[in-house]
Design a protein around this nucleic acid. Sequence first.
DNA 1: CGTCATTTGTAATATTTTTACAAAATAGGC
DNA 2: GCCTATTTTGTAAAAATATTACAAATGACG
Lengths: 113, 113
Amino acid sequence: MVTIMEEQNPYENILQDFDLLKRLIVGIGEVADITGVAQRKIRYWEEKGIIHSLKGGESSTRRYDYLNIKKIILIQELLEEGFTLDAAARKIGERMKKLHTVFTQLADQSKEE
Amino acid sequence: MVTIMEEQNPYENILQDFDLLKRLIVGIGEVADITGVAQRKIRYWEEKGIIHSLKGGESSTRRYDYLNIKKIILIQELLEEGFTLDAAARKIGERMKKLHTVFTQLADQSKEE
DNA sequence: CGTCATTTGTAATATTTTTACAAAATAGGC
DNA sequence: GCCTATTTTGTAAAAATATTACAAATGACG
């Protein structure tokens, strides 16, 4: 059970940011900096179909959205635990679905306000 | 007073993301896409000292953090309302300070978990 | 050792960003 | 309207970053 004073609830102030987070599509250099995973490695994971970038659009360089950045971080963690790449990707599947649902919901919700 | 069942509180699931949000430092192209403000315009605002990028570090290109992206969006909104650039920057000062406090607090908090 | 998965290296090419100039467009005072 | 300061936009050349397509190195495991 969590109890929060309404006036002091910081989440409300921040809800709107999920819309911004949803729009944050960033290049591979930034993703490498943010996640600590080498660019070359990210490209390899993408070749294997585990990560997906948005190349089709206006840009001809790779762009990653929030959920793919998140995925890169999660996979990195599982690799450090000893999983293979494929196993890590499989293990993450369920969790990514949940994240996707919660995230999309929050982002849309915050957009309306 | 607000009381939330722990299992149903979506904010808790997402709290950790503020640490990620804090690390999201992105290039000018992405910022232009995200905010809808032209690159050239962002550079001008930076020349005037209203926006700040992180150039001193490892990168020699402009990188913007979350709060500066936020600032760009807010200023854009005020300009559309008819404020001058300087007036918009002044008006936003107080709000940015609050955002900075809440944001830093949340990000640090989420990092500890 | 052999094999497959994974990571890393790199040269040539393409894309993006920066800088430093300058010129438009816009707004407000007189 | 004209003047002036602010703000936006354009652009060419140089610098920085990213892509592709090769290949080699490393690691895990039977």
